[in-house]
C-alpha cells in the first residue's frame, strides 16, 4: 500500500481511524483525528508537524497511556494483527516494553536518582512481565548494546553525563526486545555530536532487532538524516505521508511545503519564513480542510470539503489540489 518499495515489507503496526479526545471546560478537543497509518517492520519513520498538532498524544495513544480528561474515542491499533485497544490492562502492561517501548521526551530526567542504573533496568524488566530475574550478564549486555561500559550498572544517574543517561533510558526501552520503539524528541537536549552517537546507536539497534523506530520531533535536519519515511501532522490529522526524499524535495501538501520552506540554513542569514496566520483551535476547528484559513493555494471548495488522505504514486496527501474523491476511495497510508 505504500508503493512498490514498501509492499514487499511486512506490516508491523496498522493504525486505523485512531481518535483521541480531550474533555475541556469549553468543549471537546479532538487532538488526534481519524489517523490511518501503517508502519513496516524494521523501518525508521519520522512524525513531524506543528506544535500542538497531536504527535505526542498519538504516541501516548499507541501505548494506551492517555490520561484523564483525555480518552481514545475510536479506532484500532493493530500490532502484528492484535488490536492493542482491546487488550486487558494487564495484557497491555506486558505489551509495553515487550511489544512497543517508549523513549520519552526528556527521558534523562525520568531515571530514579537514588537507584543504581543496573537496578533500574532490572526493575523495569520485572515490572513489565519478565517473570524470572534477568539472567546474569543480561544487564551488562544491554549496556554494551547502547554503547555503555558494563560498570555503568553500578553507577547512580548523577554520575552520568546527559548522553549516558539517555543511553541508559534506551537500554531500558530495548530490554524486552520490543518490535516498535517510540522516541519523542529523544536527543533535543544534547549537543549534536552526542546526538549523532545516540541516533547511530538507535539505528543499529533497530537493525539488529528488526525493530521499527518511530521518531517524533521538530528537528528537520535530524529527520532528514535518520528517517526513511515521514508523516506530517496538522491539527490532529495526518496530512501527508511519503519517503523522506519526497517530503524534502517534492512536498505535496501546502502545509508541508511551507514547513520545509521555513527550515533555516547556513546559506541565509536574517531570512525568516514562518507560516502566516494563527494556529487552529481544536475547540473550534474550521470547516473543510483544517489548513484552509492559512493556505495560500486554497480553492473555494476547501472551506467546505474535508480532504481525506489520498494516494498519489505511493505518496499520500490530504489536499484537494490533488483531486477530490470520497473518503473511502483513499487507501490508508
Amino acid at each position: 500500500m505504500g508503493g512498490p518499495a514498501t509492499d514487499m515489507r511486512q506490516k508491523l503496526l496498522e493504525i486505523r481511524g485512531l481518535e483521541v479526545e480531550f474533555q475541556t471546560r469549553r468543549g471537546i478537543a479532538r487532538a488526534v483525528n481519524c489517523i490511518d497509518l501503517t508502519l513496516y517492520a524494521g523501518e525508521r519513520f519520522g512524525l513531524v508537524g506543528e506544535s500542538g498538532s497531536g504527535k505526542t498524544t498519538m504516541i501516548l495513544a499507541l501505548l494506551r497511556m492517555i490520561r484523564e480528561p483525555g480518552r481514545i474515542s475510536g479506532g484500532q491499533v493493530l500490532l502484528d494483527g492484535v488490536d492493542l485497544l482491546k487488550l486487558s490492562d494487564e495484557e497491555m502492561r506486558k505489551t509495553r516494553l515487550a511489544g512497543l517501548a517508549m523513549v520519552p521526551q526528556g527521558a534523562m530526567n525520568s531515571l530514579n536518582p537514588v537507584m543504581r542504573v543496573g537496578d533500574q533496568i532490572r526493575l523495569s524488566m520485572s515490572e513489565h512481565g519478565q517473570r524470572r530475574p534477568a539472567e546474569a550478564g543480561r544487564i551488562e549486555e544491554l549496556l554494551q548494546m547502547v554503547g555503555l561500559r558494563p560498570q555503568v550498572a553500578e553507577l547512580y544517574p548523577h554520575e552520568l553525563s546527559g548522553g549516558m543517561k539517555q543511553r541508559a533510558c534506551i537500554a531500558i526501552a530495548i530490554s524486552l526486545r520490543p518490535r516498535l520503539i517510540l522516541a519523542d524528541e529523544p536527543t533535543s537536549a544534547l549537543d549534536v555530536v552526542v546526538q549523532r552517537h545516540i541516533m547511530q546507536t538507535l539505528r543499529s539497534l533497530g537493525e539488529s532487532m528488526d525493530a521499527t523506530v518511530l521518531l517524533v520531533g521538530h528537528d528537520m535536519g535530524l529527520m532528514a538524516q535518520f528517517t526513511q519515511r515521514m508523516g506530517i501532522m496538522y491539527g490532529g490529522k495526518l496530512v501527508e505521508v511519503g519517503t523522506v526524499e519526497e517530503i524534502f524535495s517534492s512536498p505535496k501538501h501546502p502545509y508541508t511545503q511551507l514547513l520545509i520552506a521555513s527550515i533555516p540554513s547556513f546559506k541565509s542569514r536574517g531570512e525568516f519564513k514562518g507560516i502566516p496566520g494563527v494556529a487552529l483551535s481544536l475547540l473550534n476547528p474550521p470547516t473543510g480542510c483544517l489548513f484552509h484559513p492559512r493556505c495560500p493555494q486554497a480553492l473555494d471548495e476547501c472551506a467546505s470539503v474535508d480532504p481525506s488522505l489520498k494516494e498519489l504514486d505511493g505518496h499520500h496527501t490530504a489536499c484537494l489540489l490533488y483531486g477530490r474523491e470520497g473518503t473511502h476511495a483513499a487507501t490508508p497510508a
Partner: peptide, 24 residues
Amino acid sequence: AIPTPVPGRGWLAENEEVEMGGAG
C-alpha cells in the same frame, strides 16, 4: 555533526565509533 535538512548525506554512517563514556 549538525544534521542537514537534505536527505542522503550519510550523517548516520560517519564517525561510527561509539563513546563508551566515563563517569562524571
